[in-house]
């Protein structure tokens, strides 16, 4: 028996909004420690790693490890049926063909249950090593979303150049170019808006706007985003999910011919 309950369905709604443009389907690995998802987009250029710890749920029970292949589009449709104040419970048997989503209104007068068929999926699990990054930038997630949106109008790629002084985002296209520079915050008292850079070595890499635009769909999950960058390895774009876990997006850099 697997059962996981969240008082706020809005967290799960936001998680689905943050992955539905990248993933068609994904395997949800459920164990005692929580729920983990690792999935690549169709082109295998990006990877989503989602972790929801069991202690972050209001109720969590997982008698044996489960791998549940789920259609992200169907799951997203189901979660749209939950009210923002509803409690959500995921429930499955030990060898499940289906998973149930149960929504309960805060006054307990409405109970809705949606059952979704699981998908048999070939599991392709990649080993992501612990990596020490040359630059780690912490900044407002809203500011990052805005920069991605603004610069995407000018080119297909955004170049991120990070030095000790700050971080510079550049897009160059046929119609012109755009760049935004953010200086490291001197007084980081306003923590959420601060730009904090931990740098060992300056880096400069380019990434596809199309994927970055998908990643910033996670903005409602967290007021801060963390970008980890090293030359010649994938960018990591990380959003915390309250006290329950985090979502990390990995994106392969563009390589200059």
């Amino acid at each position: 028996m697997f059962e996981a309950r969240l008082i706020q369905s809005s967290i799960l709604k936001k998680v689905l909004d943050a992955v539905k443009d990248l993933l068609n389907e994904a395997t949800f690995e459920c164990s005692d420690s929580g729920i983990q998802v690792q999935a690549m987009d169709n082109a295998h250029v990006s990877l989503v790693a989602l972790n929801l710890r069991s202690d972050g749920f209001d109720k969590y029970r997982c008698d044996r490890n489960l791998s549940m292949g789920m259609s992200i589009a169907t799951m997203s449709k189901i979660l749209k049926c939950a009210g923002p104040e509803d409690t959500v419970t995921l429930r499955a048997a030990d060898n499940p063909d289906t998973v149930a989503f149960i929504f309960e209104s805060s006054n307990k007068e409405k109970l809705a249950e949606y059952e979704m068929k699981l998908i048999n999926m070939d599991q392709e699990h990649l080993g992501i090593p612990e990596t020490f990054y040359s630059c780690v930038v912490k900044m407002s997630s809203h500011e990052f979303a805005r920069i991605v949106r603004d610069l995407s109008q000018f080119g297909e790629n955004i170049t991120i150049a990070c030095t000790k002084e700050g971080v510079k985002f550049t897009a160059i296209g046929d119609s012109g170019s755009a760049n935004v520079k953010l200086a490291q915050t001197a007084d980081a008292s306003e923590e959420n808006d601060a730009v904090i850079i931990e740098m060992q070595e300056s880096v400069k890499l380019s990434f596809s706007c199309r994927y970055l635009t998908c990643f910033v769909k996670a903005t409602p999950l967290c007021s801060q985003v963390q970008l980890s960058i090293s030359n010649d390895v994938p960018l990591v774009c990380e959003y915390k999910i309250g006290d329950i876990g985090q979502i990390r997006y990995y994106l392969a850099p563009k390589i200059d011919d």
């Binding site: 250029v45 990649l126 392969a252 850099p253 200059d256």
Partner: peptide
């Protein structure tokens, strides 16, 4: 920019 590796190039299956 013409080249872009894919995730398994960076993170091989264990």
């Amino acid at each position: 920019f013409v080249l872009q590796k894919v995730m398994p190039d960076y993170f091989p299956e264990p």
